[in-house]
Amino acid sequence: MTTSADVAEAADKRPGEWLDPSTRSRRRSNYGSLILQFALKDFKIRYTHSVLGYTWSVINPVIFFGLYYIVATNFLSVEIPKYPAFLLLSVVMWNFFFEGSSHGVGSLLARADVLSKMVMPREVVVYSALLSAGLTFVINLLVLVVLLWATGTDIQRSVMFFPLMLANLIALTLGVSLLLSPIYVRFHDIGYLWNIVLQVGFWMTPILYSELNVPEKWRWIVWWNPVARILVDSRRSLVYGLYPGTRGVLITTLYSFFILGLGVLVFRRLQAKVADYL
C-alpha cells in the first residue's frame, strides 16, 4: 500500500532539484556541438549566394597582400628583408583579428533572433563567430605555408614561439569580443567605435611596415599595442628565425590573457541583462 507520504516523495523525486531558470542554460551538455553548428551555419549563410563561395576567404587576403606589396615596395619604397613572407604573415594575422573581433563584437546583436527567444549559453554565439573567423584563418595560414616554402624561408627552431603567438592572438580577439559584445547590445556606438579603432589600428600597427621604421619617439605606440607586439614576435620567430625576448613574450602573453580575463568577467556580469535590450 502506498501512503500519501510515498506519493509525495515520489512526486518530489521526479521534478529534480530547484534551480534558478536563468542559470539552467549552463546545465546543457552539448556546448561544443552548439558552437560548431552555429559557426558552420554562419559560414553557410555567408557564402550561400556566391559562385566562388569559400574561395573568397582566400582570395580576399591574397588580393590585399598583392596590393600592399605593390604599394609598399614600389610607391613607399619599403625595404624589409623577406618582405613577401613578412607581409603575408602580418596581413593574415591582422585579418583574423579584424574579422574575428568585428564579428565577435556584433555577434550578440546579430543573433538577437535566437537570443531573445530561447535560453542558451549566450557566449556560444561569440565563440562561434570566432570559430568561423578561425576557419578562414587556418586556410590563410596554409596559403602562408605555401608562400614560405616558395620563397625558401628557412624555418628555425625559434618557430616554437609561433604557436604561443597564435594563442595570444586568439585570446586577445576573444577577450575583446567578450568585453564589447554585451556593451554593444546596449550602446550601438560600440559598433562604430570599434570600426574606427580597427581602421586606425591598421595604420598604427606595423603590418605594412616594420617596427624599426617607427621613429624611436613613437615606438611606445607599438609596444602598447597588443596586436603589434604579437605581430612583431610572430615575424621574428617564423620569418627571421630569431628568438623573441623572453621578457617581451611574457608581457605580450600577460597582456592578451589579461584582456581575455577582463572580457570573461564583463561578459559574465552583463550577459543576464542582454535579453532586455535585444
Binding site: 530547484w18 534551480l19 531558470p21 536563468s22 539552467r24 543576464a272 535579453a275 532586455d276
Partner: peptide, 19 residues
C-alpha cells in the same frame, strides 16, 4: 524561461523546460 531576470523576487523551477 530564464530569458529575463527579475529586478527583485525569486524564480525557481524544477525539471527540464522548453520555451
Amino acid at each position: 524561461a530564464g530569458l529575463l531576470v527579475p529586478d527583485s523576487g525569486t524564480c525557481r523551477i524544477r525539471g527540464t523546460m522548453c520555451e
